[in-house]
């Protein structure tokens, strides 16, 4: 599976000595009878340009075929490979090993259902969140006349919406969230950011009354304790702290107004 490793292997390497990495992985496969959570350490030689995508594939191909993890785009775009890297949720595919020490610790994202080892079911969580918050534009008319000119929008507004639309549902914000660790039903920064995104979008006919129904409680925006690790760990650097504060102010105004 590790196409980039082999690509790099054919390339003449420099004389300088590569580091030996020790990668410790939290292993547990609920599918396997007798499997218990444990740390397992793998050693491998670092290569130029090595990312955790390359390193993990090399471990699986050469050392341990039973290791589980998820990658799709391997370009930091699709959000599949979030994991806890040295204690911090991040995208593994774009993490260069040279940015880490020689002792690296990897664990699956907490909160999400564990599939096995580093693989978690973010897809199921995100779909449930989307269904609950109805994360789609609620159009005035169900049928669009697609032969006509598109509705106009100010260029700045389109860009502001895109800024929030850049979320890749990787789950880092949820994994870093204090509330999500305590309340299974908390929608997380990912959910609140989506409310902010649709609220900003004039194509969506929903009002703050509607949004209040969706996030005006402790499972929604009032559950946030403002620890804001979500903001710190977001790989897309979304402005989560301001967006959560903004949604909270609007929802609070709704509650008291």
């Amino acid at each position: 599976m590790n196409d980039e490793t082999a690509l790099a292997a054919r390339i003449p390497t420099t004389a300088e000595r590569q580091r030996m990495l020790r990668i410790s992985i939290l292993r547990y496969n609920p599918q396997e009878t007798g499997s218990v959570p444990r740390m397992q350490t793998y050693e491998l030689e670092e290569a130029d340009g090595m990312t955790l995508f390359i390193a993990l594939n090399e471990i699986r191909e050469k050392q341990d075929a039973s290791l589980h993890f998820d990658f799709v785009c391997r370009a930091g775009i699709c959000g599949s490979c979030a994991m806890v890297i040295d204690g911090r949720p991040a995208l593994a595919c774009r993490t260069l090993t040279k940015s880490l020490g020689t002792e690296i610790t990897l664990a699956p994202l907490p909160v999400f259902e564990l599939i096995a080892d580093l693989s978690v079911n973010t897809g199921k969580w995100m779909r449930a969140m989307s269904e609950r918050l109805q994360t789609w534009v609620h159009m005035k008319e169900q049928e669009v006349d697609v032969s006509r000119l598109e509705a106009r929008m100010e260029p700045e507004l389109a860009e502001q919406i895109y800024e929030l639309d850049r979320c890749i549902e990787c789950g880092c914000c949820v994994a870093g969230c204090g509330t999500a660790r305590m309340r299974q039903d908390f929608v997380g920064a990912v959910g609140l950011n989506k409310i902010a995104r649709f609220r900003l979008d004039p194509r969506d006919v929903r009002s703050d009354d509607d949004y209040y129904e969706l996030v005006g409680d402790d499972a929604g925006v009032f559950g946030c304790m403002s620890l804001l690790a979500c903001h710190d760990v977001c790989p897309k650097e979304l402005p989560l702290s301001t967006q959560i504060a903004f949604v909270r102010r609007k929802m609070a105004a709704k509650a008291w107004g």
Partner: peptide
Amino acid sequence: APKAIRELAAWGVPWSRVR
């Protein structure tokens, strides 16, 4: 294609706009 992109515009894709 123009119909597809206009459908997507109505569905909320934040297409970059002309200034």
